[in-house]
Amino acid sequence: MPTGRDRELVHNRIAVLRAERGVSRRELATALGVHYQTVGYLERGEYSPSLHLALQIAEYFQVPVEVVFSLRPFPLIGSTTS
């Protein structure tokens, strides 16, 4: 079972979604009404979003919130198991 900081860590795919859509940190930040550094903090896992901000991000990318955020690490895209 996760302990300490692991219990509070929220994993996200914000950088992946931004890259797929060609959106800069500044563009996303402007759309969300936050400072562009906040987007960087979120992407690096240095900051966990409020529920409201998490829902705004999911809405911006037009995906369910669980596509963007998870309490567990996301599997690597394109990884294969033998």
Rank of each mutant, 00 (worst) to 15 (best):
E43Y: 08
P49W: 00
S24N: 14
P2R: 07
G40T: 03
V39W: 04
H52C: 12
R13T: 04
V63Y: 04
A54G: 14
G22V: 06
L9I: 04
L53I: 15
T30A: 10
E43T: 10
T81C: 04
T38W: 04
P49D: 00
V16D: 15
A54K: 11
A54D: 10
V68S: 05
G40V: 02
P49M: 01
V63A: 01
R44Q: 07
D6R: 14
V68Y: 06
S82D: 10
A31D: 04
R21H: 11
R26V: 14
P2H: 10
L71F: 08
R18H: 12
R25F: 01
T81W: 02
Y41W: 09
S50L: 00
I57G: 07
D6Y: 14
P75E: 08
R72Y: 11
G33T: 03
P49G: 01
T38E: 08
Q37C: 07
R5C: 13
F74W: 05
R18N: 13
V10A: 05
L51M: 15
N12Y: 09
T81R: 10
R44N: 08
P73C: 05
T30D: 10
E43W: 05
Q37V: 13
L53P: 14
Y60F: 15
F61V: 09
L28Q: 08
L51I: 15
F61M: 03
L53K: 13
H52V: 07
S50M: 00
V67H: 11
G45F: 00
V10G: 08
R5D: 15
T80W: 08
R5T: 15
P75Y: 08
I57Q: 12
Y47T: 06
R13C: 03
R44F: 03
M1P: 02
V23A: 09
E66C: 05
A58S: 11
R26Q: 13
L42F: 09
L32M: 12
